[in-house]
């Protein structure tokens, strides 16, 4: 029982530990720049990491040894990341264009200006990848390359989220009118429905490996992140559901960004799509669809076993996936 007692008295894990400075702040969002390694930056083109809008940014900097950001800094990259912050009641009016065009555009321009570069590599994770793809199609000028990490582009698949958002009785307008920002609890319950037995599985894993400090630290850090979600700005959510999920507007070519038509065919920079075989949040085919649309001469697809989060931040990812990402950026610089 000793390991279980230790587990219960364990302090919360420290997450997002890689040193970073806030280089821009606007409304609730911030742009962070990780401090370079002591020997300095060795790649002139900066990296901009765009996490999902509904999760905290520190999933890409979970904990020492399981941090993509920490690893990239150690490889000599100049790394920026968007922290979307926590929307408050007045942010119910924030639109998809505000998020994708104004915020992402500003973050990219600030990163380029501070790094003294004309362009930046953009990595978008999950919904952040969707935003990055939309932005790269409509405003390609400053995007050196696009790396879409488990990023949905096609939204009509046979998964539960697609079925739920397309059900006739789900009135997204009523949800937004009643809640303003769509509560994270509502979205998290939908994610729990993807595998309702997952909580029990986790409990069995904890009982099984409570003696393993390394496992427990990683488990608790991931649980901390998984339960630290943010609500979705209402107007932005309405368009996200109605146009992207219901109308599959990106693949249909009917989506616009601040009035500019978004055609994925307009993406000509090097593109890398990373998909995961057992990703039940973003089915891999809906993420891989990006590559069939872009006009880039350099386009790569990495398809790996694993799920939506674990395959990005695990020790295995550090050994196999991350070096391939760095190689892509080195070649695209």
């Amino acid at each position: 029982m000793n390991p279980l007692l230790r587990f219960m008295s364990r302090p919360p894990p420290a997450v997002g530990q890689t040193p970073a400075d806030v280089v821009h702040r606007e409304n609730k969002w911030r742009l962070l720049r990780y401090r370079p390694r002591p020997s300095g930056v060795s790649h002139p083109t900066p990296l901009l990491l765009v996490p999902s809008l509904i999760n905290r940014h520190y999933v890409l900097d979970l904990m020492p040894g399981k941090s993509l950001a920490e690893w990239l800094v150690a490889q000599g990259f100049d790394v920026f990341i968007i922290d979307w912050g926590t929307p408050e009641d007045e942010d119910r009016f924030v639109t998809f264009d505000d998020v994708c065009d104004r915020t992402l555009g500003r973050a990219l321009r600030v990163a380029c200006r501070l790094a003294g570069s004309e362009r930046a590599h953009v990595l978008g994770y999950c919904l952040g990848g969707t935003l990055a793809a939309i932005y790269s199609a409509a405003r390609p000028e400053r995007v050196a390359s696009l790396l879409a990490l488990a990023a949905p582009v096609g939204f009509h698949d046979d998964g539960m989220l697609s079925a739920w958002t397309r059900s006739k009785s789900f009135d997204v307008g009523a949800v937004v009118a009643a809640t303003g920002n769509v509560p994270w609890q509502l979205m998290q319950s939908a994610f729990h429905m993807l595998r309702p037995t997952l909580t029990l599985s986790k409990a069995v894993s904890v009982l099984d490996r409570a003696w393993d400090d390394e496992f427990m630290n990683g488990f608790l850090a991931l649980e901390t992140w998984g339960n630290d979600n943010v609500s979705f700005p209402g107007e932005c959510y309405r368009r996200y559901i109605e146009e992207l999920w219901r109308n599959d507007a990106l693949l249909a070519g009917t989506f616009t960004l601040s009035g500019t038509p978004v055609h994925l065919e307009d993406i000509r920079c090097p593109v890398l799509a990373v998909t995961f075989e057992h990703d039940n949040i973003v089915p891999w085919k809906s993420a891989a669809a990006l590559l069939s649309r872009v006009s880039s001469e350099v386009k790569q697809h990495i398809h790996l076993p694993g799920g939506h989060v674990g395959a990005v931040i695990s020790k295995k990812a550090a050994a196999t996936l991350w070096p391939q990402l760095a190689e892509f950026w080195r070649a695209a610089s």
Partner: peptide
């Protein structure tokens, strides 16, 4: 039915 219940509650 879940969508109808949610929408009715929200309205």
């Amino acid at each position: 039915p879940a969508g109808a219940w949610l929408s009715a509650t929200m309205k």
